[in-house]
């Protein structure tokens, strides 16, 4: 039996206001983990929506079939946190209802300019059933954990049968993959999609 036939691919999207550091988070994460993915066993397919925030009716096409969503705000700009509920509503409406959403307060290294407390973020996440963490794309703090934590949550959902793999919209695909690609310039990060990252070996 071919081991590859049992492999999973999780589709992620990264959403949030302009300038909260979506591409930088992705870059930081992939910096460490990036490798060609022909041998991938559990992989993450990441769709970056940076730079396209304004064209929402168009970018809704990304939501379809996402198993995970990283909803990012900037802890130094309150308005980006205020908009989280709007993004969440959008994700809930246009993605799979079972989509695992992780709330991420980014730029945690800028403690002196903090406008949103950790507690506020945690509280919001609690109220809306989201996973929560604060990250710094600059220092890489918690970045890995954010991506992997979401993947683990999805993996658990798959194992528990909460995510129905038979539904094509569930955002988890089985099977092996073709090549991966990464841009080192954050400005170009979101121009090719998606990005494939190895997550872990499952078989």
């Amino acid at each position: 039996m071919q081991p590859l036939a049992y492999c999973y691919l999780f589709k992620y999207i990264i959403i949030g206001d302009t300038g909260v550091g979506k591409s930088c988070l992705l870059l930081q994460f992939t910096d460490k983990r990036f490798q060609p993915v022909h041998d991938l066993t559990i992989g993450i397919e990441i769709w970056d929506t940076a730079g396209q925030e304004a064209f929402r009716s168009i970018t809704r096409s990304y939501y379809r079939g996402a198993a995970g969503a990283l909803l990012v705000y900037d802890i130094t700009r309150r308005e980006t946190f205020d908009h989280v509920s709007v993004w969440l509503e959008e994700a809930r409406q246009f993605a799979n209802p079972k989509t695992v959403v992780m709330l991420i307060g980014n730029k945690a290294d800028l403690e002196s300019r903090r406008e949103v407390t950790t507690e506020e973020g945690r509280q919001f996440a609690l109220e809306h059933g989201l996973v929560f963490t604060e990250t710094s794309a600059k220092t890489a703090k918690n970045v890995e954990e954010a991506f992997v934590g979401t993947a683990n949550a999805i993996y658990t959902a798959v194992l528990e049968g909460a995510l129905d793999l038979k539904k094509e919209t569930c955002g988890v695909r089985l099977g092996s993959l073709y090549g991966g690609y990464r841009q080192t310039d954050p400005a170009l990060q979101s121009t090719r999609d998606p990005l494939y990252v190895r997550y872990r070996d499952c078989c």
Partner: peptide, 12 residues
């Protein structure tokens, strides 16, 4: 999705 990328590419 491609349509929204052009201006990103141009910005880069």
């Amino acid at each position: 999705q491609r349509l929204t990328k052009y201006s990103l590419l141009l910005k880069a």
